[in-house]
Design a protein around this nucleic acid. Structure first.
Lengths: 190, 190
DNA sequence: GGAGTTTTGAAGTGTTTGGTTCAAAACCTG
DNA sequence: CAGGTTTTGAACCAAACACTTCAAAACTCC
């Protein structure tokens, strides 16, 4: 039919995701995006219809990938305590490593307050992650791995908040031992 | 000697702080700041020497005010558990109220990764808050209010992370009951 | 009240922003 | 190879950006 594209759309979205992730939405100019993806402006607008659209696609991809990773750990066959420990460990490795932080959290704070569509996206993701936590904890409690007086929903919110807390204080200058101390404390509930 | 100012410098910093707090650094233009403070550009640059300088002054003020409020609660004469509960309650009221979030956390994520001076400011503030927590917890443990196997420093990092976690998930769409669940779980350690 | 100093308002600086235009080049199908 | 379609690059756009300039206005002090 016609001339084929000289670039891979998925690869471009990944590059854009990294750019947005590292610098945020506002601090990433369309020029930055063109440089990161290797596209020129006209190809850029042809395929992604603007900065915001591309951001949404990048964010959606990030949320899906992260949810998948977390769900994989949580739905494995292992003691809950160990599964939660693994989730927290992964977060700590993440933050102690590249120091990029979490794209979802960054976006929650930068854009959610004044962009209802993005706020909705993040809220739905929050609920989805919460549901995984809750069912895993409910099952564990039924098996006696968690004291009967603990509420699965409450624990779900708590673990999620602990993950967020670790990520944020890591950006505020906390070192690895501090992050591990946080995880150790949180694990006392399991 | 000369013509006096027609505005109050402190009041202007407060107005700027609210603007930066609500919209972040990048999304707050100098025009926005002029509107918020009531100054015109030339007075603005005369007294504050640019957007960044004003931001630093606003941030410093915020950190001092917040540290003072938190220290006041923690250094009161009351059971630790109750003091920690009060700190968490305050955060929840804050987040469930105006939904502005925390200026320090917003800044940690927006600017700290690529602005060493701001990162240093936040890191020092983190250490200062941590020191207050630690001494309060150490004292409480000595008095037998906290089990002897708990490390004060570890608890300090943990409570601080819980505060951050509550603030972040509040921005991700969590409602008040979720925030209270997080606080309730965290308080089990005390 | 006049000298001296500072603030103030309006207009304007160059640069960067997100986004567009359009003709030429590249490709597939027939 | 020719027809039809899409991508591509370079140049271009208006608006917004942080910031400056400068003369006039406002004030204090002597």
């Amino acid at each position: 039919m016609a001339r084929p594209r000289s670039f891979d759309e998925d690869r471009a979205i990944d590059a854009a995701m990294r750019a947005f992730w590292a610098h945020g939405y506002q601090a990433t100019s369309t020029q930055d995006l063109c440089r990161a993806t290797g596209l020129n402006p006209s190809s850029f607008y042809n395929t992604f219809h603007g900065k915001r659209e591309l951001f949404l696609r990048a964010l959606r991809r990030y949320l899906e990938e992260m949810s998948a990773v977390q769900a994989e750990v949580l739905e494995a066959r292992a003691p809950v305590r160990q599964k939660v420990a693994t989730v927290l460990e992964q977060v700590i490795d993440d933050e102690a490593g590249d120091r990029l932080g979490c794209f979802a959290i960054n976006t929650s704070l930068e854009l959610a307050p004044r962009d209802p569509e993005i706020a909705g996206l993040l809220a739905r993701d929050y609920d989805r992650r919460m549901a995984v936590f809750r069912t895993v904890f409910a099952l564990a409690r039924a098996e006696g791995q968690i004291p009967a007086d603990r509420d699965p929903g409450e624990l779900a919110h708590f673990v999620n908040a602990t993950v967020a807390g670790i990520r944020v204080v890591a950006q505020s200058g906390a070192d690895r031992t501090a992050l591990e101390a946080i995880a150790r404390s949180a694990l006392r509930l399991f």
